[in-house]
Design a protein around this nucleic acid. Structure first.
Length: 465
RNA sequence: GGAGCCAUCGCCAAGUUGGUAAGGCCGUAGAUUGCAAAUCUGCUAUUCACCAGUUCGAGUCUGGUUGGCUCCUCCA
């Protein structure tokens, strides 16, 4: 299996630090607000990675954290009067539910910053003991970037002069690039945790380093195989994380780094600061979750993704075709997937998750399947193989797993269903009587109800259009 | 100001070591159908933003130009 490493900037053959195992850590959300499509894409991208690794025979251990202590959360506590836990529990719960709807598998480990404070304190203390970190009078602890010779190796950032930096300098910092490991409490209302060095809370970067150390055992100079996250985290977050880990543990945190591209709206990055967020909860109200999954995963994970309603509908059409085939072969059971097809899918996904090739192979498989059924509608062996193919797609890519008849009847209640059935019966009678004016009128009527019908040798079937 | 990414058919989008442009949507012709829909088949980029170079040969490599995006500040 090949993956693209953002540090080496090249596609690499994946060689895990432990044979047949793959350890993954993905930066999760800061839980102070609803998840948007960007969070979904990142989640979906690494879900695809995890599934692909498993399909290629690796036992995957994936950790995805929740940042549940942060300035923005504290601000929300002040604004709403709710406790920090009330806020973070609410958004974590919602995040997990929404990701579940999108078919994202749960991570093996889901650590929270507030549950990792001991590990965080230990790591900071180690860095203080080594004089790589330093405490200033306010109680803040900073990381001395000049002590890490490899600082900059992640983002390939040349150490430009401070004049270029847009960061406001704290006078007590040794170097402009030094970053906070620990932020001391500012007032009585602040949410603080006591440590040997000061009462305060962790900086943003330290939690990931500490959690990885806590949950993974290093081997051959690396703590984990793959570290993932959004492309915006490459600097400073991952640079700083790598530095902290390297300096406190003496080995590198990750062997490979993978970063997903952004979801854009009208060609611009979707972000809270731009105010152009498309929240998942809203998207899930108007679009089918499975279609959304297919769509968000239909563009290679490293490319930026410009959200478009038209393209989402195109994705739906492609998914519909898969389900029409599934409907056509139902009911049946799975034998084993077509070997050529299976290999093609695995090869595509094994090539740094080349989803475009994978989807093309699926379209091809569907066309071939329909063709086969056109010439021999009762080919049971073919039906079973096709069913196995679709099951395989569901396992590897996370779509196609639903019961096909209900897929085409999303949002149709029992009353409408009964009405449709009655109209179809009337139309059949009209057809038998060769009263095509009447049968076409009924078809138009169904069309206005948002129902498309198809006459097949086995009778008339309908879909919600 | 510094660093980086990207530019392929009307739209979306593949394209490891350079070797003669996947796939989907749309459109179109046909098979099928009472007509449709669904399904199948055919057609649909001499060309990869532009200019120059390397090469027998470049979408793929080098240099430049133009345009778009991202990071350097919280961010998936």
């Amino acid at each position: 299996m090949y993956i693209y490493d953002s540090i080496q900037k090249t596609k690499c053959h994946f060689e895990p630090i432990r044979a047949n195992e793959a350890s993954l850590y993905v930066c999760g959300p800061t839980v102070y607000d609803n998840a948007h499509l960007g969070h979904a894409r990142s989640s979906l991208a690494f879900d695809l990675l995890s599934r692909s690794l498993e399909a290629h025979g690796y036992r995957v251990t994936m950790a995805k954290n929740f940042t549940d202590i942060d300035d923005k959360i504290i601000k929300k506590v002040e604004q709403t009067g709710q406790t920090m836990e009330e806020i973070t529990d609410f958004y974590i719960d919602r995040y997990l539910k929404e990701m579940a709807l999108l078919g994202v598998k749960r991570a093996t480990i889901e650590p929270k910053a507030t549950q990792s404070l001991h590990a965080i304190e230990e790591m900071i203390q180690t860095l203080l003991d080594k004089d790589i970190a330093y405490l200033i009078s306010s109680g803040d602890v900073y990381f001395d970037t000049s002590k890490d010779a490899s600082y900059g190796s992640i983002s390939h950032r040349v150490s430009d002069e401070e004049s270029q930096s847009r960061v406001a300098h704290t006078s007590q910092k040794r170097n402009p690039k030094d970053f906070a490991l620990w932020k001391a409490c500012k007032g009585s209302e602040d949410i603080c945790f006591d440590t040997a060095f000061s009462s305060g809370r962790p900086g943003w970067h330290i939690e990931c380093s500490a959690m990885i150390e806590k949950h993974f055992e290093a081997k051959d100079g690396y703590s984990i195989d793959i570290h993932g996250g959004g492309a915006d985290l490459l600097f400073p977050h991952h640079e700083n994380e790598a530095a902290q880990s390297r300096c406190s543990t003496g080995h590198e945190v990750a062997k490979y780094w993978m970063h997903n591209g952004f979801v854009q709206i009208d060609g611009e990055k979707m972000s809270k600061s731009l105010g152009n967020s498309f929240f998942l909860k809203d998207a899930l109200e108007i679009y089918d979750a499975e279609v959304l999954r297919y769509y968000l995963n239909s563009v290679h994970y490293r490319n930026d993704f410009n959200f478009s309603e038209v393209e989402l509908q195109t994705s739906k059409k492609r998914l519909d075709k898969l389900y029409r085939l599934k409907k056509r072969i139902s009911p049946t059971s799975a034998s084993s997937a077509n070997k050529v097809f299976k290999k093609a899918l695995l090869d595509a996904m094994g090539d740094d998750l080349n989803i475009s090739i994978a989807l093309a192979k699926i379209d091809e498989m569907v066309a071939l399947g329909n063709d086969g059924l056109d010439s021999n509608p009762k080919d049971k062996a073919l039906k079973k193989e096709l069913y196995a193919n679709i099951e395989m797609i569901d396992t590897l890519l996370g779509f196609g797993g639903r019961e096909p008849f209900s897929y085409f009847q999303i949002g149709v209640d029992e009353q409408l269903k009964a009405q449709i059935e009655t109209l179809l019966e009337e139309r059949n009678e009209a057809k038998k009587a060769k009263d095509f004016v009447r049968s076409d009128a009924i078809r138009d009527r169904l069309h206005t109800l948002g129902v498309a019908i198809m006459d097949t040798p086995n009778g008339t079937v309908w879909e919600k259009s």
